[in-house]
C-alpha cells in the first residue's frame, strides 16, 4: 500500500475519552467530526480535520475501548495514525475502521511538524517525511486485507458472500 498526505502532530497520553468523550459516542460519524479532539483544545479539532495522517506520541487512544474514538478520526478524514506505541484497543478499532496504524516511535518528536508531507510505503516498510526516512515493521497480512477492503464491515461482507458461495470460508 502506498499512501501520501499531510500530517497533524499530537503529543503523548491522549486518551480515548479525550479523542471523543462518551457523551458524543452515539452521534453520526459526520457529527462526531465537529467534536473529535476538541477536548484537547479547539485548535486540535481544526488541525486533525485538515490532516490525512496523524502523528501521535506514546499511548495515543489509551483507556476507553469505545470504538467511537477511532470512528470519529476516520470520519474526520484521517487515514493513517503513526508513532506510538499505541494502546491496543485503539489499534484494533482503528484497523477495523480502515484506519491504518503504524508503530514508529522513532518518528515522534523528530522534526515532523504539522503540515509536513509524508509518504508511506507499507510494502517496503518505509516512511519519508521532512527529508528523513524511517523504517516500519511489515503490516500483518490480515490487517492489510481488512484495510484494503475498506474496513472490517466490507471485509466481513465479502467473507460472508464467499462462504455463501461455498468458498474457502465455508
Amino acid at each position: 500500500m502506498n499512501l501520501r498526505g499531510t500530517v497533524a502532530v499530537f503529543g503523548d497520553y491522549v486518551s480515548g475519552d479525550v479523542i471523543l468523550p462518551a457523551r458524543y459516542a452515539f452521534l453520526d460519524p459526520e457529527a462526531m467530526t465537529a467534536h473529535v479532539l476538541e477536548e484537547l483544545d479547539p485548535a486540535a479539532n481544526e488541525r486533525v480535520r485538515r490532516a490525512d495522517i496523524l502523528v501521535a506520541g506514546t499511548a495515543f487512544g489509551y483507556g476507553t475501548g469505545r470504538e467511537s474514538s477511532a470512528r470519529a478520526l476516520r470520519a474526520a478524514g484521517v487515514k493513517v495514525a503513526i508513532g506510538g506505541p499505541f494502546a491496543r484497543m485503539f489499534y484494533r478499532n482503528a484497523i477495523n475502521n480502515g484506519l491504518l496504524v503504524l508503530d514508529c516511535p522513532a518518528l515522534v518528536g523528530d522534526g515532523v511538524e504539522d503540515g509536513c508531507e509524508m509518504e508511506i510505503d507499507t510494502v517496503a516498510g518505509k516512511i519519508r517525511c521532512a527529508g528523513r526516512v524511517y523504517a516500519v515493521p511489515p503490516v500483518p497480512d490480515l490487517v492489510n486485507r481488512i484495510v484494503a477492503a475498506g474496513d472490517l464491515v466490507a471485509y466481513g461482507r465479502s467473507w460472508l458472500r464467499e462462504r455463501a458461495r461455498g468458498g474457502p470460508n465455508a
Binding site: G63, T64, G65, R66, E67, A70, M89, R92, N93, N96, N97, D151, L152, V153, Y155, G156, W159, L160, R163, N169
Partner: peptide, 28 residues
Amino acid sequence: DSHAPSGGALGALALGVGETELGFAWAT
C-alpha cells in the same frame, strides 16, 4: 468493552474488542 479482562478473575482469557468486530464475530 475495555474492562472485559475482569473475566480473568475466573480463569478465562477475556479480551476487550471493538463493537464492529463483535458484530463480525456474531456473523462469522
